[in-house]
């Protein structure tokens, strides 16, 4: 029974990471109706940037909690800028092009980022040095490593901030307006380009979770490190109903928990397949996703 709860916590922690990436997918889809396939690779770039920065400023600095927090914020900003850049250079010129063109461009950007990472950081995997060993916490009979709690907490805080931005601020209102009807929003005096750029920046920012995961959890980074997390987060976003932010969070958690339970069972080689089995199963029952609303496509 204890193993069950321990797995549950591990799953929620993994799910929180998926949720963070999934929210990035869903936000961009919400305003642009575009699946930004490059999102997973922004996650990978975030991890590399974090590693490079930490070796530049020195390990001693990164090892202090404040230093690590600063490093994380710097990575957040760089990922946001990268998202902005991608939107400006790749997607904005295609704003009026058919949707399939933008989709293929997204795949192109994804491959470009992977190739760039190969060229800059090389094909051999890199490893994060051990930054800090947090003591194992005994929470209600469960032995939990402090690192898992850090990841859980940071992703929770980031998602709450994001939710607040979208629902409570003027920019958030503008974002929702653009998502609802772009032309009408423009007529009301909303600067659509700026709002879309802002959405990209916000969504890509969450991909800096890549740093958290690779620094505290997996330690290993390679140029394709973003592919599988990206794919699974995309499935999570679709599961929850793409375009719906709480849906992405729920989808991410479902995926994380399901994957952990499969991996700890005798069928651990099915862990990646489970994502897609879940996707198919849920979409058969609820074609719009768990929290999605079915809409009629206007023709």
């Amino acid at each position: 029974m204890q193993g069950f709860f321990q797995n549950l916590v591990l799953g929620i922690q993994l799910g929180a990471v998926y949720a963070m990436i999934a929210v990035g997918y869903t936000m961009v889809y919400g305003v642009l109706r575009l699946i930004n396939f490059a999102h997973g690779d922004v996650y990978m770039v975030g991890a590399y940037v974090g590693l490079t920065l930490s070796s530049r400023v020195g390990l001693a600095f990164t090892r202090t909690p404040g230093g690590f927090a600063l490093l994380f914020v710097a990575t957040l900003v760089i990922c946001a800028l990268l998202g902005l850049l991608i939107e400006r250079l790749a997607y904005r010129p295609l704003r009026t092009a058919p949707r399939i063109t933008a989709l293929i461009t997204a795949i192109g950007v994804s491959l470009l980022l992977e190739a760039l990472a190969l060229a800059i950081w090389g094909p051999a995997p890199r490893f994060f040095p051990t930054l800090f060993d947090l003591p194992t916490q005994n929470v209600a009979g469960l032995e939990l490593n402090g690192k898992y709690l850090v990841i859980l907490l940071v992703s929770l805080i980031l998602m709450i901030i994001l939710w607040a931005v979208v629902t409570q601020t003027r920019v958030g209102k503008a974002m929702r307006a653009v998502a609802y009807d772009r032309d009408a929003a423009a007529l009301m005096g909303i600067n659509v380009n700026r709002i879309i750029g802002f959405t990209f920046a916000l969504g890509s920012m969450l991909a800096a979770a890549g740093l958290l995961v690779s620094a505290l959890l997996n330690y290993k980074i390679d140029p394709y490190a973003g592919v599988f997390p990206g794919l699974k987060a995309f499935v999570a976003a679709v599961l929850g109903g793409i375009g719906n932010i709480p849906g992405a969070v729920v989808g991410g958690l479902v995926m994380g928990v399901a994957e952990t339970f499969v991996a700890s069972s005798a069928y651990s080689n099915w862990r990646d397949a489970i994502a897609f089995v879940l996707l198919i199963g849920i979409l058969i029952c609820r074609p719009a996703g768990l929290l999605g609303r079915a809409t009629v496509e206007k023709v």
């Binding site: 193993g3 799953g11 993994l14 330690y219 952990t260 339970f261 499969v262 700890s264």
Partner: peptide
């Protein structure tokens, strides 16, 4: 890259 579930088992 994630072996936590197996190690936990």
């Amino acid at each position: 890259t994630d072996f936590n579930a197996q190690l936990n088992a």
